[in-house]
Write a protein that binds this DNA or RNA. Structure first.
Length: 823
RNA sequence: GCCCCGAUAGACCAAUCGGCAGAGUCGAUGGACUCAAAAUCCAUUCAGUGUGGGUUCGAAUCCCACUCGGGGCACCA
């Protein structure tokens, strides 16, 4: 029966309930230490205010909200805050374009997004809102920088860095992908600059080892990506004497066992060592080579097709184990910032060395007998194991034994030692842009780098706008003369502020700690409250931050742990990486014209339907192709569910005892509770929604052709549905709950408990197979014994028909579900 | 080149421990309601699980090889 009373009007519900929620404020977390409820901290990666929310946001926040709202229903004291990562380049570019201040664009977008979040009904505690571009926030980012500086974890050094010519700023290694700027896609070039770094490499071991704590909570995929990025390797440092140089030169090798096979020596062309040792007659060739190499972009340099290049430096290194003279070359396949910027080359057992040896006609000597063809002839280096040859005392040993032995020998002689190396580099944090957190350092001619004293923080940005922000290759702050020129905090003499701002990933490396009290004024965060709330129980965000934000935030947490400010070493206990929303098989983009506008989807189908579509589309980690899903179908389901709730609500009042209700429906209800609980716990939200759909259909059937709408079981089913639906479709759930005669928000109705008595089945269908093929089905008691079941199966007429020759060879019984008879 | 993940109906997806391949959704088809349509409701349809082997009483599930798709690392000594 249709009536206006039971018509589902999503837009009207949105207006009504958004207003009610403003009054009810249902998701405010309690900071009362005496609150007996167990605390849970749920966090979605905060957004950059680049415009309004888009489909990507719709997915993350819908998924995160299922978990958060589920926890609220379970009675936890849930902290689910919202904020903005509001420093960053797009604001600056927009400001230049529109002759405005970046803050205007930023805070206008934040308001737009905030309104959209409210409409999208995310269960945020709005009282804890923060923006990283607020001075009240970035004051503490600077305070933290000072602490890092004190601990020698922030330092300045010169060297070749990644420069994005489009964004006109340097980038960290993590922000360069395939030789391109991770943000804008421009080809990155190398520049010689002095920049600020965080010494994340000091924490390489712990970043790696503590991943054991994340096993099971984070996807193997992300853990592997971090492991690869950190790139730990074990080997040995070996000291080589260079003829004519007093100090020996150390090289790192993972294959010290092949030391006797070293036939030449290679130095990175940009390493100071190369310049120092090149002989006069080779200097001209070397300089030419160095210039040529410096011109190469990462993309050219890393091309796999690239031929080996290099120049002889005119010098010889002495092999410490056999005294052989090896020519020293400079070649760009050796990197100045890994190991010691120099290597011993063993062409027989390293493909790169072999390629180089063949290009320059250098000798190849096999020292591991692998049984494979001579690399000198085939051009294929042999990396496998085998007996050592031509290696003096190592002869006959296997690889592992030879490594052990040679390290022992070198250690005794003091010319080598066991070493661990990492691929991870220090985090370059300087940026030559305006809209970021100023680095709180003053450069004084006499005192050097002097941090701005804590009581003078924050160092606020000068008031600059429009054209003044246009990139010039140096930070825009450098042109703010009044701001730059200050007196030294130490000696009072003339000094200049550092004119770079920090990488915005610094801002986001600690925001989750500030949320416990964003207005806290005695430090970056309230240590006591963090102790109570932290670490984050569930974090959710895109996999694109696997080696960016997530690595940096882990690093910050460990430093703060060492400072005694947090008592945990890992910030994010569980991590969920949602997939992307794509369209017609491709990422949405302006150029493809396949973008889907979130606002338009909501206007057409309602918030609930969009959220439901996203949650129901598939496993959370999978991409959602918008062309494959149907928000219209979601809306249809919600209308069905809503009518069920409305009809049940019209037919009975709350508080009836459901034990007298229709037993069949009650069993469906309790089985659904049991399953949905497990499904939500294990993040299989799409299947959980399917179960809600089944429950809706079963209730519909009970109303139409069963016990009728007034049956207590129908009420129980409809109330259960309202609570479950509240995780995904809060508007429909609220209205349904109200129609069912309840006041207050359904968000706090409480998660239903399944009655175990209603989960047991009277009988189950047992499948009887003959040689794996189903031949009969038996209705049996779930408690039937294996012997009884076997007897019953063998007695079956259909089974007998397949057993002409008496007793079967074998009978497998899996009571109560299956019997397999092998004739 | 090395490593990881995935492939189930026309489409999206399910299938706790190795035990009946199908829960749910879309589409398609038919029906009920209607003067008709929309909306709503009901019903039907379709694969033997990417390919080839193996283990097993029994394989979507475990093992090996391969194909395709996605991702990570990659001149890191």
């Amino acid at each position: 029966m249709q009536s206006d009373e039971q018509h589902y009007d999503p837009q009207a519900l949105q207006v009504k309930w958004q207003r009610r929620w403003e009054e009810l404020d249902p998701f405010r977390a309690s900071d009362d230490p005496a609150d007996p409820r167990e605390r849970r901290y749920m966090l979605d990666m905060f957004s950059y205010p680049s415009g309004d929310l888009h489909m990507g946001h719709a997915e993350v926040f819908a998924l995160g909200d299922v978990i958060s709202r589920y926890w609220v229903q379970r009675g936890y004291n849930v902290l689910h805050p919202v904020g903005w990562d509001s420093f960053g380049l797009p604001a600056e570019n927009a400001a230049i374009k529109h002759n405005a201040h970046p803050a205007e664009w930023t805070y206008a977008n934040i308001e737009t997004q905030a309104n959209s979040y409210r409409r999208y009904a995310i269960s945020f505690d709005w009282s804890r809102r923060l923006h990283t571009s607020d001075t009240s926030y970035y004051k503490w980012t600077q305070w933290l920088f000072n602490r890092f500086f004190e601990r020698d974890l922030a330092y300045r050094k010169g060297g070749l860095v990644n420069w994005c010519p489009n964004d006109q700023t340097v980038l960290a290694n993590e922000q360069v992908k395939d030789g391109r700027c991770e943000r804008c896609g421009a080809e990155v070039v190398r520049r010689e600059l002095t920049q600020w770094y965080f010494k994340i490499t000091d924490y390489a071991d712990r970043l790696l080892d503590d991943m054991a704590l994340l096993e099971g909570g984070w996807s193997e995929r992300v853990l592997t990506m971090q492991r690869n990025w950190i790139g730990r390797s074990e080997g040995a440092d070996v000291d080589f004497v260079i003829e004519g140089r007093d100090e020996p030169v150390t090289v790192y090798t993972t294959r010290p066992d092949t030391l006797y096979g070293a036939t030449f020596f290679v130095v990175a062309p940009d390493a100071p060592l190369a310049e120092e040792i090149v002989t006069d007659d080779r200097r001209e060739a070397f300089e030419a080579y160095r210039v040529e190499v410096s011109k190469l972009s990462d993309i050219d340099r890393l091309s796999t097709e690239k031929e080996k290049t290099g120049v002889f430096l005119g010098r010889y290194a002495i092999n410490p184990v056999n005294g052989e003279r090896m020519p020293v070359w400079a070649a760009d396949y050796v990197l100045s910032d890994y190991g010691h910027g120099a290597i011993m080359a063993v062409p027989a057992h390293d493909q790169r060395d072999l390629d180089f040896a063949r290009a320059f006609d250098l000798p190849v000597r096999v020292v591991v007998h692998t049984g494979l063809a001579d690399p000198g002839e085939t051009g294929i280096a042999t990396a496998g194991d085998g007996a050592m040859v031509n290696s003096g005392p190592l002869d006959g040993l296997t690889k592992a034994d030879a490594i052990r032995k040679i390290i022992e020998v070198l250690s005794e002689r003091g010319t080598g030692r066991f070493t661990v190396n990492f691929r991870l580099r220090d985090w370059l944090l300087s940026r030559q842009r305006f809209w970021g957190c100023p680095i709180p350092i003053i450069h004084c001619v006499d005192c050097g780098e002097v941090p701005v004293p804590d009581d003078q923080l924050p160092v606020t940005l000068p008031d600059m706008r429009g054209e003044a922000l246009a990139p010039k290759g140096v930070s825009p702050l450098a042109s703010a003369e009044d701001w730059v020129n200050v007196s030294c905090p130490k000696c009072g003499g003339p000094a200049r502020r550092d004119t770079d701002t920090m990488d915005t990933f610094v801002d986001s490396s600690w925001y989750f700690l500030r949320y416990v009290d964003p207005s806290y004024e005695d430090g970056p965060f309230d240590v006591e409250r963090v102790r109570r709330w932290g670490p984050i129980d569930q974090y959710i965000g895109g996999v694109e931050h696997a080696v960016l934000h997530l690595l940096y935030a882990r690093f910050f947490t460990k430093v703060l742990h060492d400072m005694g400010m947090v008592d945990f070493v890992e910030p994010f206990t569980r991590l969920l990486n949602q997939g992307q929303v794509i369209n017609q098989g491709k990422a949405m983009s302006k150029s493809l014209g396949n973008g889907v506008d979130l606002g338009k989807q909501i206007d057409a189908y309602g918030v609930d339907a969009v959220r439901l579509t996203v949650v129901f589309a598939g496993p959370p980690e999978d991409d959602i192709d918008w062309a494959d899903v149907s928000p219209a179908a979601s809306q249809k389901f919600l209308a069905r569910a809503f009518r069920v709730m409305a009809e049940a609500g019209a037919a009975s009042a709350p508080g009836v005892d459901s034990t007298g209700g229709d037993l069949n429906l009650r069993k469906v209800v309790h089985r659904t509770i049991d399953e949905v609980t497990r499904l939500v716990e294990s993040h299989r939200f799409n299947v959980a929604v399917a179960r809600m759909m089944e429950l809706t259909s079963a209730t519909r059937k009970a109303i139409d052709s069963g016990p009728g709408a007034a049956d207590p079981a129908v009420r129980e089913a409809a109330e259960t549905l309202a609570v479950m639906l509240s995780l995904v479709a809060p508007y429909a759930a609220e209205e349904g709950w109200e129609r069912l005669g309840h006041s207050g928000s359904v968000a706090h109705a409480g998660w239903p408990a399944a009655d175990p008595a209603l989960l047991v089945q009277d009988s189950v269908t047992c499948v009887v197979q003959i040689a794996g093929k189903v031949r009969d089905r038996l209705e049996v008691s779930p408690e039937i014994s294996e012997a009884d079941l076997e007897a019953l199966a063998l007695a079956s007429e259909k089974v007998q028909a397949f057993l002409p020759g008496g007793a079967p060879r074998k009978v497998i019984v899996r009571a109560p579900k299956l019997v397999n008879i092998v004739p």
